[in-house]
Design a protein around this nucleic acid. Structure first.
Lengths: 185, 185
DNA sequence: ATGTGCATGTAACTGGTTACATGATTCG
DNA sequence: CGAATCATGTAACCAGTTACATGCACAT
């Protein structure tokens, strides 16, 4: 399981640190983030929860309801937190997909402030590297290149640039916030 | 096979309209677009080519090389072009991933100019819709919301906005270019 | 000598999907 | 009266991955 992997399994585990939830709740919660991250279908969500339970990373509280399937509220266990921590602390792999970064960003509140900053800085470095490669490619390719490819390249370049700008902004915000909090304002 | 699907199968088929290539060539070509689209591993690329062949959508020319595995150059067939056209002309599904759009964009040169513009406009509409939803969500959520979620939301918002700007730019470029070409400059 | 590029392929696995089954309740 | 929401789950399937096997040529 190389770092920077998308892995809904760990992401779900992470969501449970914020609060205990049922599978249904998780799906609902993920809907609002679906653009960035996507939400898994029930057909993969429920089995994932089952294996997390079987592996002792979560516990269930079964809340019965009359003549309806009972709600099953999952909570993360100590070992679960351990495993999650390890996953989070892996340095991101090169070329990690945006999704993977977004997942970790959502779980950011579980990081130390320093950890969060490091995460964002890692991402910045990766996007910068990619941006440089794209610019290089753009220089190399001449007039005769296919329209579609040129457009795709520009597209990637524009998105990478926008991401860089955003990342720089929040890095400075976070550093500020941290300075204020340690200074005690 | 719902529209807007990522489907390397069709994308590969599309690349072969630009020029006949071997599996190895395709992989190499895709490397430069890997950020946006990713490139499939050989373990899926070669089998895909085999099924394309079996289905009569491509043909192979086997170029033997002394004491080395022969190169296999694949070309798209008439039926292949037919199938590709159908795939391309499907309207994009709602919430189609960026990847899917990028793929179609790369194949853009096979579209009519009008088709290309329509593709980009479809994307614009989708991103705009998504952007609106995110803004709505941002309004709804109050101070007490978790930092990670707030960051993720801002992140999505920033990226969506950047994409909108870019899309608007090329839409107007394309419309200009089209006007010039039909006017005959 | 060691690894990187060329170039093909297969087999085992995995992480997801769709489609289905169940069944009450509430909204328009 | 039909559709959506709540809420769980299973089974069949699929598109991809990793890891492996083969083997020559060229550069460090």
């Amino acid at each position: 399981m190389p770092a920077g992997t998308v892995s809904f399994r760990h992401f779900i585990l992470g969501l449970l640190t914020q609060q205990p939830m049922s599978g249904y709740d998780i799906k609902h919660f993920l809907k609002s983030l679906s653009w960035l991250i996507g939400s898994p279908s029930f057909g993969s969500l429920y089995p994932t929860l089952h294996t997390l339970l079987k592996d002792g990373l979560v516990t269930v509280e079964v809340v019965p309801r009359e003549s309806k399937p009972p709600r099953k509220i999952y909570s993360i266990t100590g070992t679960g937190q351990q495993v999650l921590k390890e996953w989070i602390n892996q340095p991101a792999t090169a070329n990690a997909p945006l999704k993977a970064f977004a997942m970790r960003l959502v779980l950011a509140s579980n990081f130390s402030s320093a950890g969060l900053i490091e995460l964002v800085q890692q991402r910045r470095a990766q996007v910068a590297a990619h941006h440089a490669i794209l610019e290089q490619t753009a220089k190399t390719m001449e007039e005769e290149t296919d329209l579609g490819q040129r457009l795709a390249l520009e597209y990637g370049l524009a998105l990478a640039f926008a991401e860089l700008v955003w990342l720089d902004n929040i890095i400075s915000d976070l550093i500020h916030a941290k300075a204020n909090s340690t200074t005690g304002s």
